[in-house]
Design a protein around this nucleic acid. Structure first.
Lengths: 226, 226
DNA sequence: TCCCATCCATACGGTAGCGTATTGACAGCG
DNA sequence: CGCTGTCAATACGCTACCGTATGGATGGGA
């Protein structure tokens, strides 16, 4: 799909990038198996002859498509939030954003599902690592120590990944997008994935510290024991 | 692998269950694509002739293997915790268990990666739905309303799924199993995924309520943290 | 205009797997 | 001993895809 070759009959020749984009589209709605030379050629209204002029083999196409994806994905879905001044609100917004939309995630899921291929795994790893790092910085910005920021970032990213999977494999478990239960759950996430104000300093900042108004260095841990 | 046909030369005939188990083994270490008649036959030291006597086609084998898996998976990894009396400790233990071991999860991941196949998707959905329901009951048992229990169960299960993915695709982001960072993160999870004592009653029970007075009902919170 | 680089079509051979048809081995039982 | 049912081997055709070889087509510059 997209703006490549929907109209079969235009006489424009194909570029390597057109093939790469077509491969990405195929990944989005058929998975990695969709990146097959002959089917792609049919879909583009040409034959293999074209493909093997632009690429040496299927692997090369896949690599190119992955590079294209990684490029497009850089900063997504965070880039629009860089100018949110309040770090706490920025985190809330990224949590909401990321667990709401599915737009960017279809390709990611297809790639992750094919992570047995070391080439694919490398790209998935890079993209995800960058995302986690971004989250980590956001958490540091609200006052967490580097260690705690890492933990929260890891937690939030696993919620994101797991939520994707739930929405795909168990749609019944996910509230309908415009229901009140949906917005309540998002609000719930915004709370569950943000550390307490009073839990900023302790070594193991935890979300639950009732009655721990004090902020010793690492004393707040046992402070809950009533 | 496993106890099926490692020794090529034993003259015992094969049963349909032997094929199903071999299929499961293949899923575990090659993914769904490993469920292929001829490769399996080679692995079992026989030929297709055997297979097509026991099964009508590949689909039938897959179905049988999935049934076998669902059966084995029923209750896992929760069954050993049913007799934990304290509901709060039971939740802590399941959180720890589930995010620690990878034993049971290889097949799950392979299946989930192939969830485009509707047959596979059906099994994955059933197993996961059951697991979420179990978690939901656990959360109800610590005093949450049904709605809140659902939310927490969903959250915890997505953390579990996402953690699996992180450990597979970004091993660098996951602390080494016997490091202190590892046990600290597990402790962190046990807190992040358990609601506050004082957050039991509010409609949207949240993990973060600094300064709220503690209710003494289930206050035996965290005796952990050596 | 002629030529050459660019891009594509056609035809071919090769591999891997599915499924079928037929034959073969073998054990238990009459 | 021979029959029969059970399980496996062999051989075959079929599909889908990868990659190669080679021969058009087409358009822009010398």
């Amino acid at each position: 799909m997209s703006a490549t070759r929907d109209t079969i009959n235009d006489k424009t020749r194909l570029s390597a990038d057109a093939w790469a984009q077509a491969a990405l589209d195929a990944i989005a709605d058929q998975g990695i198996a969709g990146v097959a030379v002959e089917p792609l050629a049919r879909r583009l209204g040409v034959t293999k002859g074209s493909f093997y002029w632009h690429f040496s083999n299927r692997e090369a196409l896949l690599k190119r498509a992955l590079e294209r994806w990684e490029e497009q994905e850089t900063g997504v879905p965070f880039q629009s939030l860089e100018n949110e001044p309040d770090p706490r609100r920025r985190l809330q917004r990224v949590i909401r954003e990321v667990n709401t939309s599915l737009r960017t995630s279809r390709i990611y899921q297809a790639l992750s599902a094919a992570a047995d291929d070391p080439l694919i795994a490398a790209f998935v790893t890079r993209v995800s690592t960058r995302r986690i790092e971004t989250l980590r910085q956001y958490y540091e910005a609200v006052g967490l120590s580097p260690d705690n920021a890492s933990r929260w970032a890891r937690l939030t990213y696993s919620v994101f990944l797991g939520t994707l999977q739930i929405r795909r494999d168990m749609p019944g478990e996910w509230p309908h997008t415009d229901s009140t239960e949906f917005s309540e759950y998002i609000a719930f996430l915004e709370r569950a994935l943000l550390p307490d104000d009073d839990a900023m300093n302790p070594d193991l900042a935890a979300p639950a510290h009732p009655g721990a108004a004090l902020t010793g260095t690492l004393a707040a841990n046992t402070a809950t024991k009533s």
